[in-house]
């Protein structure tokens, strides 16, 4: 897997650096009050975490994170920001402490749960001794797709993925219908004179 000597160390250092960047961004998001800056930073957070997923070999998860987190979510957050104010209110009293305690408790539970997990790349772990081995051995001779996750998603489990695509399409269609199209949708927040001017221009052109 490694390209040259010391690549494992380089990847480890890269993982640590990326996690540090994520940590800094998360702290900054929690402390900032400007909503626009928070939206920008959450886009950066998604991009960096997607890179980290790639470094961990979870390429499909990384791509979903980049498309949904950095692409669509940023646009949706900006659209939501049109409808609200530009800064968040400062928390005071219990609302400042309780979320921190919840986050620390959840993190502690998750760390406790990782103690039972097998080591990363452990050849005796259940994932590497059960059906996983079968897929690793048979995928390339059978359908010649180098990435096994892609092979399972798009070929062995093709009908399931087709159903998922149908569900996502229906959801997207429903959201588009709820938001509306054209002049009556989010365009209502454009300044009125701009809209009148563009309407006039349309009339001139037609």
């Amino acid at each position: 897997m490694t390209g040259f000597e010391g690549a494992t160390l380089a990847i480890d250092l890269l993982n640590i650096t990326l996690l540090t960047i994520l940590f800094v961004i998360a702290i900054a998001i929690a402390r900032l009050r400007s909503l626009f800056a928070i939206v920008m930073l959450s886009g950066i957070y998604s991009l960096v975490s997607a890179t980290w997923f790639v470094a961990l070999d979870a390429v499909d998860v990384a791509f979903t994170e980049a498309a949904v987190g950095a692409g669509i979510s940023t646009a949706l957050f900006l659209g939501a920001m049109v409808l609200t104010s530009r800064t968040a209110k400062a928390e005071k009293g219990a609302t400042k402490i309780v979320p921190l305690l919840v986050v620390i408790a959840t993190g502690a539970i998750l760390i406790y749960a990782t103690i039972d997990l097998p080591g990363f790349g452990d050849p005796t772990s259940p994932a590497n001794t059960g059906v996983g081995v079968d897929f690793i051995e048979r995928t390339y001779p059978e359908i010649a797709i180098p990435n096994i996750v892609t092979a399972v998603l798009a070929s062995y489990r093709g009908f399931d993925t087709l159903g998922e695509v149908g569900v996502v399409f229906a959801a997207g269609l429903a959201v588009s219908l709820l938001l509306g199209f054209g002049e009556r949708s989010l365009g209502a927040s454009v300044r009125r004179e701009d809209r009148v001017a563009s309407l006039k221009k349309d009339e001139e052109e037609s």
Binding site: M40, G43, L47, A50, A66, A67, A70, G71, T74, A75, L78, G79, V82, G182, E183, S185, L186, G187, S189, V190, R191, D194, S198
Partner: peptide, 23 residues
């Protein structure tokens, strides 16, 4: 990723200019 980055930058700048994505 480059494609996604380009599209989201366009979306952000459009939001800046028009306060809307529908223009």
């Amino acid at each position: 990723y480059a494609l996604i980055n380009f599209v989201s930058t366009i979306a952000i700048l459009k939001f800046f200019r028009y306060r809307s994505f529908q223009v």
